[in-house]
Design a protein around this nucleic acid. Sequence first.
RNA 1: GGCGGUGUAGCUCAGUUGGUUAGAGCAGCGGUUUCAUAAGCCGCGUGUCGGCGGUUCGAGUCCGCCCACCGCCA
Length: 520
Amino acid sequence: MSRAFFVTTPIYYANAEPHIGHTYTSVVADMLVRWHRQRGDDAWSVSGTDEHGEKMVEAAEKRGVDPAAFTEKISQLHQHTWAELDLVPSAFVRTTDPRHVRNVQEILQRVWDAGWIELREYEGLYCVGCERFLTERDMVDGLCRDHERAPETRRETNYFFLMSREFGWLRDHIQANPEWIAPERYRNEVLGMLRDASGLGDLSISRPKSRLAWGVELPFDRDHVCYVWFDALISYLTGAGYPDDPKFPERWSAAEHLIGKDILKPHAIFWPIMLKAMGLAPYRRLHVHGYWNVDDRKVSKSLGNMISPLAMRERYGFEPFRYFLLREMSFGLDSSFGEDALVERVNADLANNLGNLVSRALNLVEKGFDGVVPPATTAFDADRHVMQRAIDTVQRVDAAVGALQPSQALAAILDYASDLNRYIDERAPWKAGKSEPGSEAKELAGTTLHNACEGLRVIALLLAPFLPEAARGIATRLGLDDLIGRSRLPNDAMAWGQVPAGTRVAKGAALFPRLEKPAE
RNA sequence: GGCGGUGUAGCUCAGUUGGUUAGAGCAGCGGUUUCAUAAGCCGCGUGUCGGCGGUUCGAGUCCGCCCACCGCCA
């Protein structure tokens, strides 16, 4: 019986091209979906583009186009990028999509009818230059920071989502479910926001059309459009098939959100309260990751100071980049990206350790056993150790993925590659090269290489969600083309003996060629 | 200003409920091997565990104060 799994990335704000931050979140989501499918789960993912809001209008005006054309272009760019990188989500939601707009309006009407929304007159300091209300932070000595002019007092009517009366149960929910927001540091931050809720009031969810026309029209007041989060967060429901996809209920019950730490508050506070207002259960978990810091000086001039995933693919291949992202960031903390670090990491782990292991093991099979996997005829301590370590590794990887620590999962897989390198060294099967078939030395060499191939099969299977292309590369070289497709985690990874003696292997080209550091 | 986090080898980080000589990976140095992608394997780390003080038979690991950086809130 397959279990449901549902993961979302944020819908990316459509004012910028895909960069390293978007790529990281999408890679993690992709890895989780592959991991769950490899387990036989029914996995679904959602990503998309957030296309409404003031900033979008500004960005479009700056380029002299209308918002619809502008966001269309950026959204296409995102979709094209994810397609190129094999990171296509099950559903890609654009907030301008009519189906989504319909959902937002239906929900707004329902929440309005249930008394969760109130019209209020808002008075504040408005800067004509900025065309918006200012906060204290926007002002210096009573003047607008950007325009150096005095703001005027203005009144405006906004619709407010009555959120502040709900903080009590939300805090209880967070306290009763320690794993609901992870890592723990962010859970504490949210509890902090709720503890001293003075700064958190009700949420303004509308703008008068006179000021902002680009948005979803409120169904109960045609003169206003929906503003920011209310519209954006609902995209997760749209992507899950709301309201009438038969799979929506089970998907929603399994929902896990991946976000960067900059959008913690909307996801940890606004969203659960919105869900309650519309009569839906809270999502299952919220996973918060940190920022990628980029050291401009060390980024090649040809790339500029933005890390474009397509440019990285051009230069290093996408899987090495993907490996670096997953291996280098401890989920939840900030990390830094540098090309030198990428090259060092990939060469040490993938080329020298794993890639070379594949190369030497299959070369030994080709030269010593005519390219055919020999049978294992004995089992000494060293052989049993290699089998046992496969099981340990599966368990370590399983635990790491469960805890959303991809870096630890990869570390465990590469540790096992080191074990196999040591095992081959100890046995030195190349020394039996000229021994008679059937001799003790030849039999032991055969056993060693048989187990080495088994170990590589386990590695390929575990690696598949992280580096799908490389995993297929290992499987193909082992002569097991359908390995990834027919195997299930974790059982097939723990069951030794699925590379039959007699399988024809092919060393082929280097799995991970060594990379060169960019010239300064 | 309030709340919280972080500060451990050149770099990135592990360090369970306090307990023997503080660990790993990478980089570096030395050795070895030659099946392999100038890869593998073996060996080499006395670092005031940010500082000061305290609790304790014993603290990186608990408490207080201070410093630095970061985050959230104001």
